[in-house]
Every structure is written in structure tokens, then in C-alpha cells.
């Protein structure tokens, strides 16, 4: 089932790229063989073809997951979603809020949510690390920060 879903996802991506390739100019100043869509079309056809083979082949038995209890899996999925949401929020707010403030809050909140203990120490580490990163990039290596 897992293989079928990924095959379908990648086939959709392949079709998207194939359509894009077919809509590119067919003739260029270098003739028809210089056309920009030739190679993308070839690669997308290969993706579609290989994924199609995966889709129709005999499905392999899935070994993973059987040994992991449902509660653990559920907890893991919850942590995964939480982490993804926090990462998205951090990137979304970058450039909108001062780097030191945003990163200190992000590191503190993320560590606190996942660790659930030693709150004061976590906040102290987060602020120290943020300031460290800020100075390392912008003052030592003279690189711009968001």
C-alpha cells in the first residue's frame, strides 16, 4: 500500500513535468534537437514508467510497524506534526521578527514542548545559543542573517 501511494504521488509529479516539457518550444535557433523540452520529457517519462512498474508489481510485504505499539506510533506522529508545525512557523516568521528574539523563543518553546522539564535551563541555553549563532555568523564570519 505504501509503495502504491508513493508511486501515485511520483507519477503525478512526472505527468506534471511531462506536460510542462511538451509545452516548451519544439524548435530553437539550434534546430529541433536543441529544444529545451527534450531531456525533461525523457526524465519525466522514465519517472512515470518506473513508478508504473512499482505500481503494478507484486506488492512486497511490509515488515516495519508491526513491532511498534499503536500508542507509541500515535505519540510519534503527534511529535512529528508538532515539530513540523513549529518549523513552519519559525521559517514563516523569519525576517518579520528580530532574529535573536524569534530564535530564542523558537528554541525555548521547541525544547520545552519536547523535553517537558528543566524549563529555566532550557531557556538559558536557547538564549545563549541564539546569541552565539548571531555573533558567529554576523560578527565572526560577516554573513547576513534574516
Amino acid at each position: 500500500m505504501k509503495d502504491r501511494i508513493s508511486a501515485l504521488v511520483f507519477i503525478a509529479l512526472g505527468i506534471f513535468f511531462l506536460i510542462g516539457a511538451l509545452r516548451m518550444p519544439r524548435v530553437t535557433e539550434y534546430g529541433k534537437y536543441g529544444a529545451p523540452g527534450i531531456v525533461p520529457a525523457f526524465f519525466s517519462i522514465m519517472v512515470i514508467l518506473l513508478c508504473f512498474i512499482m505500481l503494478v508489481r507484486k506488492q512486497r510485504a511490509s515488515y516495519e510497524g508491526s513491532s511498534v505499539p499503536v500508542e507509541v506510533k500515535r505519540a510519534e506522529n503527534r511529535r512529528l506534526l508538532l515539530a513540523s508545525a513549529m518549523f513552519l512557523a519559525y521559517v514563516f516568521l523569519l525576517g518579520k521578527i528580530n532574529f535573536i528574539v524569534l530564535t530564542s523563543i523558537f528554541l525555548s518553546v521547541t525544547s520545552m514542548v519536547f523535553l517537558r522539564k528543566r524549563f529555566i535551563l532550557t531557556v538559558a541555553i536557547s538564549v545563549a545559543v541564539t546569541v552565539g549563532i548571531y555573533y558567529l555568523f554576523s560578527h565572526v564570519f560577516l554573513l547576513p542573517l534574516p
Binding site: Y90, V91, L94, T103, F106, I133, L143, P144, L145
Partner: peptide, 10 residues
């Protein structure tokens, strides 16, 4: 993660 973000940005 912050290092990945900063490293990519710069």
C-alpha cells in the same frame, strides 16, 4: 534546525 535555516539563508 536553526543552523540549517541560517546556513541556507546566508
Amino acid at each position: 534546525f536553526v543552523l540549517c535555516v541560517v546556513g541556507t539563508y546566508v
